[in-house]
Amino acid sequence: MIAPSCSLLHTPFDLDLETVINPFVKNWMAFAKQKLNEINELARIIDGENDLLLENLKAISSRNVSPLIHKQEVKQQTAAITDEDANRISKFAERQKIQQQTFGLPLFPTTTIGSFPQTDDIRQLRAKLKKATYPRISTTSK
């Protein structure tokens, strides 16, 4: 029995409906309809239809050598990386000073990635908010 290894529920329906994708890249992709066709083709390959296997191997090979994803300049730059590249030229204090001058960062900069630093007071207020035990403030004027 040949079947998908997972649900196709969240897979886009039909790659044929995509009209602006580069045809070379499109050949490497499969949406739900194409995945089901591939399953059918696997069964046919098992039954001896080697021409389907050769077509599939051509598609895989075209991706493996495509300049769209295999960029020689990136390979050369990566090959040229040395252990020395992992060492910073300047000390942290020097970099920090330059960043402060450039970005005007506060003493303890934070980002929205991850959790915000919280004081004990803030944690207690948030816990009360969750329990709805915080003091009610009237917004009506008297």
Rank of each mutant, 00 (worst) to 15 (best):
M1Q: 12
M1C: 10
M1G: 13
A3N: 11
C6H: 15
L8I: 05
L8P: 01
L8K: 08
L9E: 14
P12M: 00
P12H: 00
F13W: 15
D14I: 03
L15K: 03
D16K: 08
D16P: 05
T19A: 10
V20L: 05
I21G: 00
N22P: 06
P23H: 03
P23D: 01
V25A: 00
K26L: 03
K26P: 00
W28M: 01
W28N: 01
A30F: 00
A32L: 12
K35H: 07
K35D: 02
N37P: 12
E38R: 04
I39W: 01
I39A: 03
I39D: 02
I39K: 01
E41M: 13
L42S: 09
A43C: 13
R44M: 04
R44F: 02
R44C: 04
I45R: 01
I46M: 13
D47S: 14
D47V: 10
N50H: 09
D51Y: 11
L52W: 00
L52R: 01
L52S: 02
L53T: 02
L54Y: 12
E55T: 06
A59L: 12
S61M: 10
S61L: 08
S61I: 13
R63E: 06
R63D: 04
N64P: 09
V65P: 01
S66Q: 05
L68N: 06
I69T: 07
H70E: 03
E73K: 02
E73S: 01
E73V: 04
V74H: 00
K75T: 04
K75D: 04
Q76R: 09
Q77M: 11
T78Q: 11
T78N: 14
A79D: 07
A80E: 03
A80W: 08
T82Q: 07
T82S: 06
D83R: 06
D83W: 05
D85M: 08
A86V: 08
A86T: 11
N87G: 12
I89D: 13
I89C: 13
I89G: 10
I89H: 10
A93H: 11
E94R: 09
E94I: 12
E94K: 10
K97R: 15
K97D: 11
I98H: 05
Q101E: 09
Q101H: 08
F103I: 03
F103V: 03
F103H: 04
G104E: 01
L105Y: 02
P106E: 01
T112H: 12
I113W: 00
G114H: 04
G114Y: 07
S115N: 14
S115P: 07
F116H: 15
P117D: 06
Q118T: 14
Q118F: 12
Q118G: 14
D120C: 09
D120S: 11
I122H: 07
I122D: 07
R123H: 08
Q124H: 10
Q124S: 08
K128A: 10
K128F: 15
L129N: 11
K131M: 14
K131E: 15
A132R: 07
A132Y: 06
Y134E: 14
Y134V: 14
P135W: 01
R136S: 13
R136L: 15
I137R: 09
S138G: 13
S138R: 08
T140D: 08
S141A: 12
S141C: 11
K142D: 14
